[in-house]
């Protein structure tokens, strides 16, 4: 038997009434990778994670974890551990007791489990807080305790359910870096659920983009960002423009459904027409985004495109101005017809 992947989902489905939360999903997660499941709410990503964790059972299909059939196994018989969205720390136990709980259940002696719990807390830089109650910690600290509590059991796979969702922006960015470096150091498989495409792209080795219970695209962050395969992925990951075949052809692209990233569209001043067949567009909105500006431009046909322009050159454009569009042919990305 060849073991391919630490977690393998084969044609896994989970239905809630008439809703197909997870619909015949095939997925292989490789040992040691940082795997992100990205999608809007209701896309099936969280249900998929819960199926791996054992909190849901599939209606059909197979789940294999570390070479073992996992469907039908309760959570406490699976070699995976979860960091919950709300952290789920036990309020009646101290931080140390929370972290040591899994070891206690396994029957380890007090001295040994206290030592291991302390090591785990040190790993997440929380040593010294072992005697506190979870209610005395900040959101970021609670998140680390949840992480330590799962890591102390040395799971084959660590499941993270939107673990950074409740943190403020600065803390979230710090934790992204920290989680990534922790994962590298431990060489552990992380499966990470998020609805934040920036988070998925910056942390993951591979991303599965979920849409209506199915995996719409699976690939590296560059793949899903630069070369989306469907209209949904193009729109959800990085808000690309999706052009119908006729519009694409008019802009100098192939006569097919394509996506076009906002930063790859060039804008030229009225007096510098690039080609005879270049299209003109009117700027209808400019929004400030810090290092760049996002412009909405309207074609003659009424079609709107979003265009991203560096802050340094944005001063030469103003609302209502008519400009020429310049799109390099390499910028067009073919989408599957839907």
């Amino acid at each position: 038997m060849t073991i391919s992947g630490i977690v393998r989902l084969e044609q896994v489905s989970r239905h809630f009434g008439a809703t197909r939360a997870v619909d015949a999903v095939d997925l292989t997660i490789t040992e040691g990778e940082f795997f992100a499941m990205l999608g809007p709410s209701g896309s099936g990503k969280t249900t998929c994670l819960r199926l791996i964790g054992g909190f849901e059972q599939p209606d059909s299909g197979h789940i294999v974890i570390d070479g073992q059939r996992a469907e039908g196994l309760p959570p406490y018989r699976r070699p995976v551990n979860t960091v919950f969205q709300d952290y789920a720390l036990f309020p009646h136990m101290s931080v140390g007791q929370n972290v040591a709980y899994g070891l206690k259940v396994r029957g380890q002696g007090r001295a040994e489990r206290d030592r291991e719990a302390l090591d785990a807390l040190r790993l997440v830089r929380l040593d010294g807080l072992a005697d506190r109650r979870p209610s005395q910690l900040s959101g970021g600290q609670r998140q680390r305790v949840a992480l330590a509590r799962a890591l102390v059991l040395h799971p084959k796979v660590l499941l993270l359910d939107e673990p950074l969702g409740a943190l403020d922006l600065k803390l979230r960015e710090e934790m992204q870096v920290e989680l990534k470096s922790l994962q590298r150091r431990l060489g552990l498989t992380f499966v990470f659920v998020t609805h934040d495409q920036g988070e998925a792209l910056s942390m993951a080795d591979r991303v599965a983009v979920f849409d209506r219970g199915k995996v719409a695209q699976l690939g590296t962050p560059e793949d899903v960002h630069d070369r989306p395969r469907t209209r949904f992925v193009a729109g959800f990951v990085g808000a690309a423009n999706v052009l119908e075949p006729a519009v694409s052809a008019a802009l100098g692209g192939p006569e097919a459904l394509v996506s076009l990233r906002p930063e790859k569209i060039g804008l030229l001043a009225p007096d510098t027409r690039p080609r005879d067949d270049a299209l003109e567009a009117r700027i209808v909105d400019i929004s400030y985004q810090g290092a760049f500006r996002r412009l909405q431009v309207e074609l003659r046909t009424g079609m709107r495109l979003s265009v991203q322009v560096a802050a340094s050159i944005s001063a030469s454009f103003s609302q209502g101005m008519v400009v020429w569009l310049n799109v390099p042919s390499a910028a067009f990305n073919l989408l599957e017809a839907d």
């Binding site: 909190f55 509590r149 799962a150």
Partner: peptide, 18 residues
């Protein structure tokens, strides 16, 4: 009692009785 607390206990290896 939050459902996630019960799930966390199962996740950490506790049988339903435990």
């Amino acid at each position: 009692l939050p459902q996630s607390l019960l799930q966390a206990a199962s996740d950490l290896g506790a049988t339903p009785w435990r």
